[in-house]
């Protein structure tokens, strides 16, 4: 027998309340302050660098995202590193916090389905992240126009918008992860630590671990040159388990029109190519489409896991 009524009834009410809560919480203010400061810093440094070195570049604006001046990393790598932190801050006590405040049973006794609670929490978090990212994007453009004295070109806009969308999906992965932990683990502090550990492993340690794993999986045979290619590809595959790697590839491809591939390229494949000539935007997106789908799939998988556990969870602790 089918359930009566829509499982999505009340989703928007919950999402808007969650978003309002996030917007007014001190936690969110602090973390956004951190992001804004680092972003402003990175952009400012990039502008300095661009002013010092620029020749003629059709995609000058995109350089704002990618150019780094030592020792600061570029804006894009800052985002890859910090946005998970934003998402975790928004999601780590999403479900277990309701149990802790003893509001869960009261909310579930309202005429809504359980589905709406989790959907609403995810949507509310995404809404806040979306607003924050859009603000950041607009600020960057504003700074760029002011300090470079140039309007962005249509290509700049298209590519950076695609980058914005990919960033939203990447942050969604981490939000889904944080929500999944908040469903699985009853104590908010523990779920925060669990999510932060995963973040540390994937953002910092994964690039150190993956070569070892790869060399164990497909060792290089010095007498077989093809084994070197295999080893490289295995290493890449292992590294791509981390959403941070996928996001890094997407960012490089979208923000640097002259890059051609995220994997190894043979000289024969480069024959006839104009080195340094920009690819059309759509072609760049096509190259990283698997990465974007991968991120999206990861987000869906984590959310579904959280959803599955949450639907079966006892209302009482």
């Amino acid at each position: 027998m089918k359930r009566e009524g829509s499982p999505l009834k009340g989703v928007m009410t919950i999402a808007l309340k969650e978003a309002a809560d996030h917007m007014t919480s001190a936690r969110m203010h602090l973390i956004m302050l951190l992001v804004l400061l680092t972003a402003a810093d990175a952009v400012y440094a990039a502008i300095d660098q661009i002013k010092a070195t620029t020749s003629e570049d059709p995609f000058l604006f995109l350089k704002l995202f990618t150019v780094a001046r030592q020792p600061l990393p570029s804006f894009a790598s800052f985002m890859g590193f910090l946005l998970p932190l934003v998402a975790i801050a928004l999601g780590f006590d999403g479900v277990n916090g309701e149990y802790g405040r003893r509001t869960m049973s009261r909310i579930l006794a309202q005429p809504i389905y359980r589905d709406a609670v989790l959907f609403g929490k995810f949507l509310g978090g995404m809404l806040v992240i979306g607003i924050a990212l859009l603000t950041l994007w607009l600020l960057m453009f504003g700074l760029g126009i002011l300090l470079l004295g140039l309007p962005p070109s249509g290509g700049d806009m298209a590519r950076s918008l695609a980058y914005l969308a990919a960033t939203l999906v990447y942050t969604g992965v981490w939000l889904a992860l944080a929500l999944a932990f908040s469903t699985l683990i009853r104590a908010p502090a523990t779920s925060a630590l669990a999510a932060l550990s995963v973040w540390l492993i994937f953002s910092i340690f994964w690039s150190m671990i993956s070569p070892f794993v790869a060399s164990a999986l497909s060792p290089v045979d010095p007498y077989d040159p093809v084994s070197i290619v295999h080893a490289y590809e295995t290493g890449l595959a292992v590294a791509r388990i981390s959403p941070a790697t996928l996001y890094g590839e997407v960012a490089t491809m979208l923000l640097d029109p002259s890059s051609r591939s995220v994997g190894p390229l043979f000289m024969s494949q480069m024959q006839g190519a104009l080195v340094g000539a920009p690819l059309p935007t759509l072609q760049s997106i096509l190259i990283v489409w698997p990465q974007i789908s991968g991120l999206f799939a990861g987000m869906m998988l984590l959310f579904t896991g959280a959803y599955f556990v949450f639907q079966r969870q006892e209302v009482r602790a």
Binding site: E4, G5, K9, S105, R106, A109, P111, I112, Y113
Partner: peptide, 12 residues
């Protein structure tokens, strides 16, 4: 099976 209808009329 009809939780919404039940929860509409029952306060907890």
């Amino acid at each position: 099976r009809e939780p919404l209808a039940v929860k509409r009329d029952v306060g907890y």
